[in-house]
């Protein structure tokens, strides 16, 4: 079993393919993705990676903006606690994410659409598992209705 499109038991309506924005930290998760590349590990093509130096750089506004612009899911990848290249950046990410989750819940965005994962530089296999799992879950949830423009503010429609 080595395909990049995971076989979902319930494919979305009209062959819907979710778009997932991923913020990966330069030192761990981005490297893990590179390692997946050099090792030719295949996974779902639904994620688009945006590189930051540390997961601590990820402003909650980026996450909200992504959803507003049509992302069906957002994934943040950082180093395991204790291993952050900048000592504690990932702890701050963790704190922020906890609070951001509350906001997203109020807005009716399902929990599975937003994930924070610790993936170290050598964990290419884990990256594949996480991505495939997330894509499958978001695909089952269906598209998130953002109207694609930033000026719509945070007008996210869709029930929780």
């Amino acid at each position: 079993m080595s395909e990049e499109k995971p076989k979902s038991p319930q494919a979305g309506p009209n062959g819907f393919e979710p778009k997932i924005v991923a913020f990966f930290c330069n030192w761990c998760t981005y490297l893990a993705a590179d390692l997946a590349g050099t090792s030719r590990v295949k996974y779902a093509p639904n994620i688009r990676v945006i590189r930051t130096m540390c997961s601590g750089r990820v402003d909650p506004q980026f996450v909200l903006d992504a959803f507003a612009r049509g992302a069906d899911g957002v994934l943040i990848g950082g180093c395991h606690p204790g291993d952050c290249h900048y000592q504690e950046g990932n702890y701050k990410t963790l704190r922020r994410v906890k609070m951001l989750r509350r906001v997203l819940r109020e807005m009716g965005i399902e929990e599975d659409r937003f994930r924070l994962e610790w993936i170290s530089a050598s964990e290419a296999e884990r990256l594949k598992v996480v991505v495939n799992d997330m894509v499958e879950k978001v695909r089952a949830l269906g598209p998130l209705q953002g109207d694609g423009t930033r000026d719509s503010g945070l007008g996210i429609r869709g029930e929780g």
Binding site: E4, D34, G37, T38, R40, Y43, V49
Partner: peptide, 21 residues
């Protein structure tokens, strides 16, 4: 490459991803 051509097999979707990136 590492994030696209080397990890995906569907040409259409890999190209779509490359364009988006």
């Amino acid at each position: 490459r590492e994030h696209d051509s080397w990890v995906h097999t569907d040409r259409a979707r890999a190209t779509e991803k490359a364009i988006a990136l």
